[in-house]
Simulated scan of single mutants.
Amino acid sequence: MTRPPKCRAVESMPGVTYYKPAGIPLRLIEELVLPVEGLEALRLKDLEGLDQAECAAKMGISRATFQRVLAKARKTVAEALTTGKAIKIEGGVFFLTDSQSI
């Protein structure tokens, strides 16, 4: 039996939760799911420019776990951008630390 995932701290919920390529009807697009904690990992590392240890501390997880969350989020975004798929931000194992939008 595997250990249940630890809740990850997320500063706030995103204001926009769906992205799709322009000019293609939604019914024709495959969508990928980006968990909320994946978006938070991208925000902390790539937008805020924090190092991995700082990001992990802010999310309340180990550096190794942070690296796995970040790698999966980057792969999801890269796949969506290169193959013309939509990104739906939802779900995950997290708790909110603030009530503002990203």
Score class of each variant (00 low, 15 high):
Gly84Gln: 00
Lys58Val: 05
Thr82Leu: 08
Ala56Asn: 06
Pro21Arg: 01
Glu30Phe: 12
Lys6Ala: 10
Ile29Asp: 04
Glu37Val: 06
Leu81Asn: 12
Lys20His: 14
Arg3Asn: 10
Met59Val: 05
Ala22Glu: 13
Lys72Val: 02
Ala22Tyr: 09
Glu48His: 03
Arg27Ser: 15
Val36Ile: 14
Ile24Gly: 01
Ile87Leu: 12
Ala80Arg: 11
Arg74His: 09
Ile87Asp: 04
Gly15Tyr: 09
Ala71Ile: 08
Val77Lys: 08
Pro25Arg: 07
Gly49Met: 02
Glu54Ala: 15
Gly15Thr: 14
Ala57Gln: 09
Arg43Ala: 02
Phe95Leu: 04
Cys7Phe: 11
Leu26Val: 07
Phe94Pro: 02
Ile89Met: 01
Glu31Met: 04
Asp46Phe: 13
Met13Thr: 07
Ile102Pro: 00
Gly15Asp: 09
Glu79Ile: 13
Gly60Asp: 12
Cys7Leu: 12
Leu26Tyr: 08
Leu81Gln: 15
Phe95Asp: 03
Leu70Tyr: 02
Gly49Ala: 11
Ser101Trp: 06
Val77Cys: 00
Asp46Ser: 01
Leu42Val: 00
Glu30Ile: 11
Ala57Pro: 03
Ile24Asn: 00
Val77His: 07
Ala73Cys: 07
Arg68Ala: 10
Leu42Phe: 06
Thr83Gly: 06
Ser62Ile: 00
Pro4Gln: 06
Phe95Val: 05
Ala41Gly: 03
Gly23Met: 10
Arg63Asp: 04
Glu90Trp: 03
Ala22Val: 12
Pro4Ser: 01
Ala64Met: 07
Glu40Ser: 04
Ile24Val: 07
Leu26Arg: 11
Tyr18Met: 13
Leu34Phe: 02
Tyr19Ile: 14
Leu34Asn: 04
Leu81Ile: 10
Phe66Ile: 13
Leu28Asn: 08
Ala80Trp: 05
Ser101Asn: 01
Thr17Ile: 14
Lys58Trp: 03
Leu81Ala: 13
Leu47Arg: 09
Leu26Ile: 12
